[in-house]
Design a protein around this nucleic acid. Structure first.
Length: 490
RNA sequence: GGUUCCUUGGCCGAGUGGCUAGGCAACGGUCUGCAAAACCGUGUACGGCGGUUCGAAUCCGCCAGGGACCUCCA
């Protein structure tokens, strides 16, 4: 099979992916901060890297996929100097224990991801469970001279680090630009420079989430957890680190700096960033308040939604755009995905009822080859899907009798669609199989349709149409075929 | 303001020097008692203005519009 090429944010170009240890891949992806419901934007990185995970598995790699849960509160409103973090604040608003908030939204996140058919990662570490590792890393950075203690907090010394290494290399900045553009915040006089960031933060008296340390009762800085946990589970050097583009700076830049400062070398070989989902051309974000939660999408319960959209519609919608492009939300676009997915799935079902011939008049091999070539080219799922539709046309043509397929090719084609659509793209059937789980219903409908066939034989069109229309209105779709009829639950 | 990215037919979205993805919608046809589904056919799109080139949506320059990051963010 061809080699996988991925776009690496660090050199800003596509590179052939070669794992550090042959046959094995270490993958780390920034997971959610669990303080509110997951929204459409969160679906993107999870589906993107789920595709990567599945594709790597398909290629035969042994993958350790680590995706963290951020459940340690971090400073939210430094301007006001309250020092209150998101999780603590939410806990007060909802009168819950902080860990209760964490559990609640983590459960929702898992439920939503499961609905989207996102495979669970190999390890899902929580920041709160790795305070020790984070403190050890602070210790290392202090020892190496790239951090300083001030008033019970520990800050990363960006200027000093930049003299030896290059702060800004990932996000394409240099320290002079950052210096002139960093907002001057209040209550930061402890820092030598405004762009220094906290490794350990002393907790204010009202701050609930806190851990004892040699510096103070406090909590780790936000960027630290990913450095500490990726190193712990994937080693001092690992293959791929993923996350949303909005995390490139400062989060990932700080991660690079911390890891380098602690270990003396960089840890990540390939950085991958997915683009944002937009709404009216603007990024969908919790902070902007323009988000639609996944539960709202699944239920249709939101003023911007014309209807409910199934999890697979959402997944397909996301896969129909390249992960490095922005993707604009709209009802029209979602409905187009819904119908398109339906057509794809119908064609796959048709594969089970095709007549085989001696010879094939179609070329199934080229579709397969093109699909894999597309995915190998930086996970170009939209192009792979486009080729799948060429196959849909073939399948329907075979059914219509204008093309032929041999038994051998049919088996290959089925196997390919199963692998590509279900295993790699991670789509699944959502429609109930026709009455399969209810033989009574099954029999009743068959009976009605036989009566309808009789009515048709007698040219009693009114009766035939009545049966069809009324079954239709209760959610059963009737299609007449040459052989008689087909029906399915809508 | 700094850095950076984008602008493709009615909508969503690939592509990125010549071979004019794909989906949805629309129109015409085939099939059908009608319908649905399916199939066949139809649309010559690349923000504007210059330049490079035999040839540009694709490269370069300028202009216009929009976004992202610079603060928490997927």
């Amino acid at each position: 099979m061809e080699q996988l090429v991925i776009y690496n944010t660090l050199p800003r170009k596509k590179e052939v992916f070669k794992p550090l240890v042959e046959g094995n891949v270490g993958l780390y992806v920034c997971g959610p901060t669990v303080y509110s419901d997951s929204h459409l934007g969160h679906a993107r990185p999870n589906i993107t890297f789920d595709l990567l995970f599945r594709f790597l598995l398909h290629k035969g790699f042994k993958v350790r996929y680590v995706r963290n849960i951020t459940d340690v509160g971090h400073l939210e409103d430094e301007v006001e100097g309250t020092g209150e973090d998101r999780i603590t604040k939410k806990a007060r608003l909802e009168k819950l224990e902080p860990m209760e908030v964490v559990q609640k939204y983590m459960n929702t996140f898992h439920r939503n991801m499961n609905a989207l058919n996102v495979l669970p990662p190999s390890i899902e570490p929580r920041a709160s469970g790795h305070i020790l590792e984070q403190m050890q890393m602070v210790e290392e950075i202090l020892k190496n001279g790239f951090a300083y203690e001030a008033g019970g907090s520990v800050y990363f010394d960006v200027e000093k680090y930049n003299k030896k290494y290059n702060y800004g290399k990932l996000s394409g900045r240099n320290l002079d630009d950052i210096r002139t553009n960093t907002r001057q915040l209040d209550g930061q006089d402890e820092k030598k420079n405004p762009f220094d960031f906290a490794l350990w933060k002393k907790a204010s008296p009202e701050h609930i989430m806190r851990w004892p340390s040699k510096w103070s009762d406090g909590f780790p800085g936000w960027h630290l957890e990913c450095s500490a946990m990726s190193t712990k589970y994937l080693g001092e050097t690992f293959d791929i680190h993923g996350g949303g583009m909005d995390l490139t700076f400062p989060h990932h830049e700080c991660e690079v700096a911390q890891s380098t400062a602690a270990l003396g070398h960089e840890t990540v070989r390939y950085w991958m960033h997915n683009n944002m989902i937009t709404i009216d051309g603007q990024k969908m974000a919790r902070s902007l308040g323009n988000f639609i939660t996944l539960d709202e999408l699944f239920s249709g319960n939101h003023e911007l939604l014309e209807k409910a959209y199934s999890p697979m519609t959402i997944r397909f919608f996301i896969l129909q755009a390249h992960y490095r492009s922005t993707l604009d939300f709209s009802n029209e676009a979602l409905q187009a995905s819904e119908k398109g997915l339906d057509r794809l799935m119908n064609a796959i079902e048709t594969l089970d009822n095709l007549q085989v011939s001696e010879e094939s008049t179609i070329d199934i091999f080229s579709i397969k080859e093109k699909c894999f070539a597309a995915l190998n080219d930086d996970l170009n799922s939209p192009v792979a899907i486009a080729h799948l539709y060429d196959g849909v046309k073939m399948i329907n043509s075979i059914k219509a009798g204008t093309e032929k397929i041999s038994a051998d090719d049919l088996e290959k084609l089925k196997s390919f669609y199963n692998t590509m659509v279900f295993d790699i793209l991670g789509l699944k059937k959502e429609k109930a199989d026709a009455g399969a789980n209810d033989s009574v219903l099954n029999g009743a409908i068959e009976l009605l349709l036989k009566l309808r066939t009789e009515a048709k034989v007698n040219k009693n069109w009114a009766m035939a149409d009545k049966i069809r229309d009324e079954l239709n209105s209760i959610g059963i779709e009737i299609k007449d075929t040459k052989e008689g009829f087909e029906w399915s639950l809508k």
